[in-house]
Design a protein around this nucleic acid. Structure first.
Lengths: 342, 342
DNA sequence: CTGAAAGCGCTTACAG
DNA sequence: CTGAAAGCGCTTACAG
């Protein structure tokens, strides 16, 4: 039989009961006599009937769908966040839909209604925040404030403290400060830094931690050891090569702290092209601990940011309704890309 | 004002018109006098009203949501497929929801209704097919047949020819045959193969192409040069180490064709641990051309499977309604991991 | 235990 | 150009 378009009416008719009764056996709520229940179930099976989650949502005001906003999925880290979140969401009975950042800070009127965050009646929203220039941060604040009337929101990533939302945030400044300190302990004095952006207002930035680390070690802070990029391997290669090109070899950095593993990979390539030996001539620290980090040569020392866990925890926090702000877990993973310096 | 729960009734009341009229200006259909239109738009703006895509879908029978089934998103390739598909879908006004493979071949009754494929009233479904053991393939066939009554379906990946659906499929047998032939041209005679599974019934399998390639070159086919794994780097390392352990060094393969780049990375690690020089002692070919392939040492020769493009094309095919079967694009990317053998 | 009715927030003929 | 009414497929008080 397996009629495609069966509705609750078809089942009711077939079983000789009201749709109310069908609804009851569907949700196992209310009481139904064993015998009617059997008849209804038989009809459901015969029709291969599947109640429309849409119609159900229409009444229950729930879509069982969570929204998620990621800067870009192309970066494998974000795929990890999404995977972790998606698994946990499914576990708790929800689906996740991805929305682009511009649906939050861009002009949403251009998007068809079916794609608009506000129209989708989401049950919640997870936003991965990265360093944003002040103007964008402002627009984000505004949209978030509007959206929060409709649905719970959780922020993840590097969340500036002026966002007053439940959040799970990496203490990036502190992490970076510790990275500097690790390199200092290895004897390095010319430590370069390739970060994301300097524009954000918040204090919890990599470059802030970098500067702090330098200060702690009473090392001078040279502008030529600092660079910024968008975070791809190509960017990283260009950034480090830029330093090489602008400095006499005697002043080249002996260590570099990279925004992420992608950038670190680019640094490895740049160093190789300059004939440097790794890690003897240059130490490199990445971030994110991509699955390929142990397979690079030298195997990359990195920071495991447990992004899959972050995604899962974001969903848990969102669905729990709690209003707390948490630090994201992370951990240094020492491999072979950092060497001792005499 | 920005009332959160505004409905079309609120707007109608505010503008002093019927909901029909509001609906008309919302969709820009039917004719509305310039003056009423203005009034309605003002009310919409004042209420910050966003029509519910759910309710709209209720009438239009459309959810503007596509389903996608990927074996596992953790493998970065799948993230690429998803990204490509998601972008194209959005471009065409749709969202994509990810479902696990078990919602197709497993017991769906365990899943809450909101997560069931059949209940979600999707506008279409993309299924990424991998080698499946016969029993699973059978169940997949059955579920697909049922689902197809409700929504268009497109299959992607390595789609066995007995699936009669619109599809975009990699000619894996042929690709692998060409890989063998490339290595033979380089002078290799002991070519190993680490594949996914041998269980599938279809002819379009890597191992079939591998055997064909060997035959073409009149090379013997030794069971000890063939291994199978699930596709992670650890698997690859274990598989190749297994060959080393079971063979006298004089019989070690001089080249290996890996299921994918992850497995290839594992092979590099295994070879290094055995003290082999790459590519002098061992040539390696991966598959997928992961973003890190050029940064491995040796830079990995691989097959670019353009997975992002695949995802986008799958959406295009699905939404076009065409019933055709296409070959997926691919391309050899020669780098440094394959050496000439005398 | 069971059913009639109202309602969820829209769209779409059908009249006027 | 505009509106009343029916309908999309469910759920949930409210009666019985």
């Amino acid at each position: 039989m397996s009629n495609s378009g069966s509705t609750i009416y078809d089942i009711a008719a077939e079983a000789g009961v009201s749709i109310t009764t069908v609804s009851r056996v569907l949700r196992g709520s209310g009481s139904v006599s064993a015998e009617t229940k059997k008849r209804v179930e038989a009809a459901i099976a015969r029709h291969n009937y599947h109640p429309s989650a849409i119609a159900q949502g229409m009444t229950s005001k729930k879509t069982y769908t969570l929204g998620m906003i990621l800067p870009k999925l192309l970066n494998p880290n974000y795929a990890m966040i999404f995977t972790g979140a998606n698994d946990e969401a499914r576990h708790q009975g929800h689906l996740i839909s991805l929305f682009p950042l511009r649906s939050l800070i861009g002009d949403e009127t251009e998007a068809p209604p079916a794609l608009s965050l506000a129209n989708r009646r989401l049950d919640g929203l997870i936003v991965c925040v990265e360093y944003l220039p002040p103007r964008q941060a402002e627009r984000l604040q505004k949209t978030l404030k509007e959206l929060r009337q409709y649905m719970p929101i959780v922020l993840i990533g590097c969340v500036p403290s002026y966002f007053k939302y439940p959040a799970i945030s990496y203490p990036m400044a502190d992490i970076t400060r510790q990275a500097v300190s690790y390199l200092v302990g290895l004897g390095h004095e010319r430590i370069a830094f390739i970060g994301g952006t300097e524009e954000d207002q918040d204090e919890n930035r990599r470059d802030v931690g970098y500067l702090e680390g330098l200060k702690e070690a009473q090392l001078p802070c040279t502008a030529s050891y600092r660079a910024f990029c968008r975070g791809t391997a190509e960017d990283g290669e260009a950034a480090l090569e830029g330093m090489f090109a602008s400095l006499l070899p005697a002043y080249w950095p002996t260590a570099v702290i990279a925004l992420n593993d992608l950038v670190a990979m680019g640094c490895i390539a740049a160093a190789r092209k300059r004939g440097l030996k790794l890690p003897e001539d240059l130490s490199i620290i990445g971030c994110d601990n991509l699955y390929c980090a142990p397979y690079l040569s030298p195997a990359l020392t990195s920071i495991d940011t447990r992004q899959q866990e972050l995604g899962a925890n974001a969903v848990k926090l969102l669905l729990s309704g709690e209003e707390k702000r948490l630090d994201a877990e992370w951990e240094f993973v020492i491999r072979e890309s950092c060497g001792r310096r005499e």
